[in-house]
Simulated assay, not measured.
Amino acid sequence: MVQQNDFQKQNVLTAAAGRRTLTGAAFALALMALFLAGVQNPDPAWGKFWMIRPLLVVTMAGALGGFINYMLLHYHRRLGIHKGIAVVLSALIYVVGLWLGSVLGLVGTLWD
Rank of each mutant, 00 (worst) to 15 (best):
L98R: 02
L79G: 04
L36W: 04
G105Q: 03
V107D: 08
N41H: 10
M60N: 04
R53M: 09
L55K: 01
V57S: 01
A91E: 10
R77I: 14
L98D: 00
Q40A: 15
L79D: 05
A37C: 11
G38L: 08
V88K: 09
N69W: 06
V58Q: 04
H74V: 13
G80K: 04
G108V: 09
V87K: 09
V107A: 10
A63T: 05
V96H: 02
W50N: 06
I85T: 15
W99P: 00
L92N: 10
T59Q: 00
G66C: 10
A33W: 07
V58H: 00
W50Y: 10
G65I: 00
R78F: 08
I85S: 13
M51H: 10
I85K: 12
Y75F: 15
Y70W: 15
F49K: 04
V107H: 07
A91Y: 09
L104W: 10
I93E: 02
G66R: 01
L98I: 13
V103N: 00
L104V: 13
P54C: 08
L79Y: 09
Y94I: 05
L79W: 08
G108Q: 08
L56W: 07
G105W: 00
A63R: 02
V88G: 13
A61H: 01
V96R: 03
V107F: 05
L98M: 14
I52N: 04
L104F: 12
M60G: 11
Y94L: 13
H74W: 07
R78S: 12
A61M: 09
V39E: 14
V103I: 14
V87P: 01
V95P: 02
W99C: 12
H76R: 06
L79M: 14
A45L: 11
L36D: 04
M71S: 13
L98S: 00
A86G: 07
L104M: 14
Q40H: 13
F35K: 09
Q40L: 13
Y75G: 07
